[in-house]
Structure formats: structure tokens, C-alpha cells
């Protein structure tokens, strides 16, 4: 059976769902970052697949920029995470209630 675009898109969606589940269920900030990486990667698969099956390079370009954004996100996010950890010795989401009105 020939692998088509929809196979890739469905795979991408399933991985995105796993990422969503991670984002919602994990309370540890580091795990949350991992789940975010999964989300970004799943989208990248979709971009690359569409690019291939349409014969258009735009998809790859987008995947490329997504990777760049993921890299900067990790850099800044980890920096903030370290500062937070140094202050509170915890990186549990439920402890971060400073947004509470």
C-alpha cells in the first residue's frame, strides 16, 4: 500500500495529540518543555510531508523556521527555569500561583 499525504498528516496529528496530552497532564515544568518540543516536531512532520507531496519548498522553509524558534525557546525557557529553581527549589506548576487574582 502506497504511503500518501494523509498517512503523514494523521501521524503528525497523533503526535500532536500526544504532545497536547503531555502539556495538559504534566505538572513538572521540565516535562512541560519536553511536551512542547513534541508539539513542534509533530507539526514539522506535517510541513515536510505537504512540501513533498505538493512539490513545493515552502513547507520545508516553515519547518526550518520552526526549528529555529524551538531552539531559541529552549534557550530562554531553560534560563528562566533555572532562575525559578534557584529561588524556590521547586519547578512544580501547581506551586506557581502568582497569576491568581
Amino acid at each position: 500500500m502506497e504511503i500518501g499525504l494523509s498517512h503523514y498528516l494523521i501521524l503528525s496529528t497523533i503526535l500532536f495529540g500526544i504532545g497536547l496530552y503531555g502539556v495538559m497532564s504534566r505538572k513538572n515544568l521540565l516535562m512541560l518543555f519536553f511536551a512542547t518540543e513534541i508539539l513542534l516536531n509533530s507539526v514539522n512532520i506535517g510541513f515536510a510531508a505537504i512540501s513533498h507531496y505538493l512539490g513545493d519548498l515552502t513547507g520545508q522553509m516553515f519547518a526550518f523556521f520552526v526549528i529555529a524558534i524551538a531552539a531559541s525557546e529552549v534557550a530562554v525557557g531553560l534560563g528562566l527555569l533555572v532562575v525559578w529553581f534557584k529561588r524556590h527549589n521547586r519547578i512544580d506548576l501547581d506551586e506557581m500561583m502568582s497569576m491568581r487574582g
Binding site: 506557581m96 502568582s98 497569576m99
Partner: peptide, 10 residues
């Protein structure tokens, strides 16, 4: 609006 990030994400 509990201020809990997890709830907000949900």
C-alpha cells in the same frame, strides 16, 4: 481563573 497554568492550558 485560578491562576494555575495547568488549568489554563486545559
Amino acid at each position: 481563573q485560578s491562576g494555575n497554568l495547568s488549568v489554563m492550558l486545559r
